[in-house]
Design a protein around this nucleic acid. Structure first.
Lengths: 191, 191
DNA sequence: CAAACGTTAGTTAATATTCACTAACTTGCA
DNA sequence: TGCAAGTTAGTGAATATTAACTAACGTTTG
């Protein structure tokens, strides 16, 4: 279980990565953000890698929750729609999360971290492929292109759109504009 | 103009980023890779940022060349097809380039670098939007979804696919498998 | 034509700064 | 009163960069 301070550290780390990239995530910056001294950090996490592991784990949980909710929807198209909506809402309300969805480049130096990140990506694509395959069987989703191609398109679209939102400095309303993009995606993959 | 040594430095930097991420790009590693001393690097570039600027500029040129060739094709669908092919071929033959297409996260700390990277992304999406808009006018590309949505989908698909190829350690043939993905994308955006 | 001069590209050694992390001490609270 | 959570003051290693110097080559000029 995580203590209140541990959660605080993970959230501060997330927001530091979001603001300044991985290079800005130093123990010094982290402690300054929280308002304690550097060594105090080590009372709560053994070392820096453990903090990053906790960051990735919290994102992994977040993804798990989204999927669980998505699966309650009936119909593949509704599920994909719900997944996009949940993503956009979460990123809109907590922009720091965006950093993690593009974290493959950030955590490359530590094998334990890079393994975790590529695992998250693969799990997402796998999940989407399954949803699409079922939708194809039920006649909702087109079958003239392979399910894994559609999954890469859907996931790639989501990622680039969120990335662009980040690059514009949250310059447009991700939730509102995102809804329009969802409709376009649905049109393209529907039968 | 660039000297032979400058080109050598940029190529070494590119391949270091590709192998070990931005954290692995140190003057020490760079000089070791080339086989000269660390200070010798500074005979050719004023500082580290200038090296990264040169890396981004060389990618910008590479992109310009691709676009120039793509525009020789007649028909929007052929142009998009040619663009994908050119990308896949280039990345397949020079995997280090992949690092740059996902460089937004890497160069975030230096404003001059982050500006350059987001400019590259936007230029690509703009270019694609234009191609798609013309294709829509000529009746080749579907008009039931906005051109900029299609552009984000096409570009996002390309990016995630290349990313996955990188994450699998070039575990599949990007050129061969990529051709199949192109066909799927073309099917989806065609009228 | 050859010596003086300047340039290019390298060297070793040292710089200040930042990094993650630790040892030892103090404080507040159940 | 004992322990969890904080502090101050340090560590060694790595970072980008600079200083001072040199070998090799080209160019100008007496």
């Amino acid at each position: 279980m995580q203590t209140a301070r541990q959660i605080e550290i993970v959230e501060a780390a997330l927001s530091l990565i979001n603001e300044t990239g991985i290079q800005g995530l130093t123990i010094k910056n982290l402690s300054k953000k929280i308002g304690i001294s550097e060594p105090a950090i080590y009372r709560h996490y053994e070392n820096k890698v453990e903090i990053l592991v906790a960051v990735l784990d919290s994102f992994s949980n977040f993804m798990g929750n989204i999927k669980a909710n998505v699966e309650k929807q009936s119909g593949s198209l509704s599920q994909i729609e719900a997944m996009f909506s949940a993503f956009f809402k979460a990123f809109y309300e907590n922009p720091s999360l965006v950093a993690v969805i593009f974290s493959e480049e950030l955590f490359r130096n530590e094998p334990r971290l890079s393994d975790k990140t590529s695992e998250i990506i693969n799990r997402n694509i796998e999940f989407l492929s399954d949803v699409i395959r079922k939708g194809a069987q039920q006649g909702d989703i087109r079958t003239d292109v392979p399910a894994n191609h559609l999954a890469i398109m859907v996931m790639g679209t989501l990622r680039l759109y969120v990335k662009n939102w980040q690059l514009t400095g949250a310059g447009f309303n991700l939730k509102v504009e995102g809804e329009k993009l969802i409709r376009s995606v649905i049109i393209l993959i529907s039968k």
